[in-house]
Amino acid sequence: MLSPRSLLVLALALCVCLVSCSQTEKADRAKPGTPAYFWQAANTAWEKGDFVTTVANLDKLTVRDSEYRAQAQVWLMTIHAGFAKGDMEWADVLETGRKRSRTGEATFRREMAAARSSASQSVMSYLELANQHLSAGVPEEPVIPFTAAPPADRPIEINKIEKGQFPPAAEAALIHDRLRAQAVAESTKAILPPDGKPNRNLYLAAMAKEMIDLCGLYGPKRLNETGRIRMITQVAGHAVESMTPCRSEE
């Protein structure tokens, strides 16, 4: 059995340990409102699969210079590309359902228009960030600051929607979110180097391909805006022109 003196020493040691741990935790927490704080918040939200909150925090890092700005741009571009593709697919699902709906065609049309409008906003956000990113110059070993988003399965409820049955609003929102999550996962996978080694040309090629894919939103069967297609292809061309030319062997 420990003596009273030994118990006192043990209690003091425990208090010191607790204070030390508490101070370490506080040191690890960035001060609210600082770039480091928003960066930590973005990472925390990303790990939870909360892409909307991730975007909200990353947005704050792109409006002013900081050590996180360039990385935030890359991260935001990837999420916006995923959001746009998820919205595009959701709109296409609604388009199919609208054609088969007997009573809810107006609802399908309204939601379809909203989805394509949202997709267009994401594409324009992507384009603005891509312009800034390319103009600043892409390093030989691009830093990709995120891990791949977890893969998401295509919602089985889509089958009913495509047959003309529009679900309750809350259920529709969940299906839409899952399509977005699926697309974000695909976009992160596309930009990450397959072997884990950063490669400037592969990175720029992936950017260019992403932009060409996003052109589909403005085709004749969707928004039919050729001007937007020209804007996107110009930036995609900038990405290709920024690639390091291959050296021929002598």
Score class of each variant (00 low, 15 high):
residue 161 I to Q: 00
residue 14 L to S: 15
residue 120 S to Q: 15
residue 68 Y to P: 02
residue 181 A to Q: 06
residue 150 P to E: 07
residue 44 T to G: 10
residue 33 G to Y: 02
residue 188 T to V: 01
residue 111 E to Q: 10
residue 127 L to G: 02
residue 24 T to R: 11
residue 93 V to N: 10
residue 222 R to M: 05
residue 241 E to L: 12
residue 107 T to W: 15
residue 169 A to I: 05
residue 155 P to A: 09
residue 240 V to H: 15
residue 248 S to R: 11
residue 83 F to W: 04
residue 138 V to I: 07
residue 136 A to I: 03
residue 70 A to H: 03
residue 99 K to Y: 03
residue 27 A to G: 14
residue 80 H to R: 10
residue 183 A to S: 01
residue 52 V to H: 13
residue 106 A to C: 08
residue 102 R to Q: 11
residue 157 E to W: 09
residue 168 P to Q: 05
residue 225 E to P: 00
residue 211 M to C: 11
residue 49 G to C: 08
residue 42 A to C: 08
residue 243 M to I: 04
residue 231 M to D: 12
residue 97 G to D: 05
residue 106 A to I: 06
residue 47 E to G: 04
residue 74 V to Y: 08
residue 222 R to V: 06
residue 35 P to D: 08
residue 93 V to R: 13
residue 127 L to I: 05
residue 193 P to I: 06
residue 157 E to R: 04
residue 108 F to Q: 08
residue 216 G to C: 01
residue 41 A to Y: 09
residue 228 R to T: 09
residue 170 A to D: 15
residue 107 T to S: 13
residue 78 T to L: 03
residue 219 G to H: 13
residue 108 F to A: 07
residue 15 C to L: 14
residue 234 Q to T: 12
residue 160 K to Y: 08
residue 90 W to V: 07
residue 238 H to T: 07
residue 79 I to D: 00
residue 177 D to S: 05
residue 160 K to M: 08
residue 43 N to E: 01
residue 149 A to P: 03
residue 86 G to R: 00
residue 26 K to A: 11
residue 1 M to Y: 04
residue 113 A to M: 15
residue 183 A to L: 04
residue 112 M to I: 13
residue 69 R to P: 06
residue 133 H to W: 14
residue 128 E to S: 12
residue 92 D to M: 04
residue 85 K to L: 09
residue 15 C to R: 15
residue 236 A to D: 08
residue 104 G to Q: 14
residue 18 L to N: 10
residue 103 T to M: 14
residue 174 L to M: 13
residue 235 V to H: 14
residue 123 V to Q: 00
residue 140 E to N: 15
residue 223 L to A: 06
residue 62 T to W: 03
residue 24 T to C: 08
residue 147 T to P: 00
residue 227 G to M: 10
residue 236 A to I: 04
residue 182 Q to Y: 01
residue 89 E to V: 04
residue 44 T to Y: 15
residue 139 P to Q: 07
residue 98 R to W: 11
residue 97 G to Q: 07
residue 139 P to V: 03
residue 134 L to W: 12
residue 151 P to D: 15
residue 79 I to C: 01
residue 188 T to Y: 06
residue 250 E to R: 12
residue 246 C to W: 10
residue 52 V to P: 08
residue 81 A to G: 10
residue 214 L to V: 05
residue 202 L to S: 15
residue 149 A to D: 07
residue 95 E to N: 11
residue 188 T to H: 01
residue 158 I to D: 13
residue 22 S to V: 04
residue 206 A to Y: 12
residue 170 A to T: 05
residue 164 G to I: 10
residue 28 D to C: 09
residue 78 T to P: 01
residue 157 E to Y: 05
residue 85 K to M: 08
residue 155 P to R: 11
residue 90 W to E: 10
residue 212 I to M: 02
residue 170 A to Y: 13
residue 95 E to I: 01
residue 178 R to G: 02
residue 206 A to V: 06
residue 77 M to N: 04
residue 226 T to L: 15
residue 164 G to D: 06
residue 168 P to G: 09
residue 107 T to E: 11
residue 135 S to R: 14
residue 66 S to Q: 11
residue 71 Q to W: 02
residue 16 V to Q: 13
residue 230 R to H: 12
residue 199 N to D: 07
residue 44 T to D: 14
residue 160 K to L: 10
